[in-house]
């Protein structure tokens, strides 16, 4: 069995501001994808899921689920493996802090963000809304 992690070397878009899909969803047709049962994501933790071309990190904040791209804008670290601190996640590689609501980087003081995806829970299943495919 081969490792399924994609190579996360130098990301071409590292450090650049990326358009949020939450904002773009108005223009594109909404696609809601049934992802997983709520029990698959432990409280205050994240798990990654591959949806088409994207790898998305979904976090269980107790009262809601939040989804962002599973790539830290710094060096592509797996955000799903970070420690959740309030409404943010801290990347396990170099401790960049990313807001899970807006996708904006909170620490260090740089202008960068990750795409976010609307979520909802239906009958114990987490759904993630994908707009069109990401530009990257």
């Amino acid at each position: 069995m081969t490792p399924t992690f994609p190579a996360r070397g130098a990301a071409p878009h590292a450090g650049k501001v990326r358009r949020s899909f939450a904002a773009a969803a108005n223009a594109e047709p909404e696609t809601w994808v049934r992802v997983t049962g709520v029990e698959a994501i432990p409280l205050r933790q994240g798990r990654s899921v591959r949806l088409g071309a994207r790898e998305i990190a979904i976090f269980n904040l107790g009262d809601r689920f939040l989804a962002v791209d599973n790539r830290c804008p710094h060096q592509g670290g797996p955000l799903a493996d970070g420690i959740v601190a309030g409404g943010t996640v801290v990347c396990p590689l170099h401790s960049w802090k990313v807001c899970l609501e807006s996708g904006a980087v909170r620490k260090p003081d740089v202008t960068a963000c990750v795409p976010t995806y609307p979520t909802r829970v239906e009958d114990g299943v987490v759904l993630v809304c994908l707009g069109a495919a990401p530009a990257a």
Binding site: Q45, P78, G82
Partner: peptide
């Protein structure tokens, strides 16, 4: 486990590529 660093959640040392 949510309060622990990823290394202590999965008992292995995370590398720069996420492996």
């Amino acid at each position: 486990r949510s309060a622990r660093y990823i290394n202590d959640r999965v008992h292995a040392n995370i590398q720069r590529d996420g492996t």
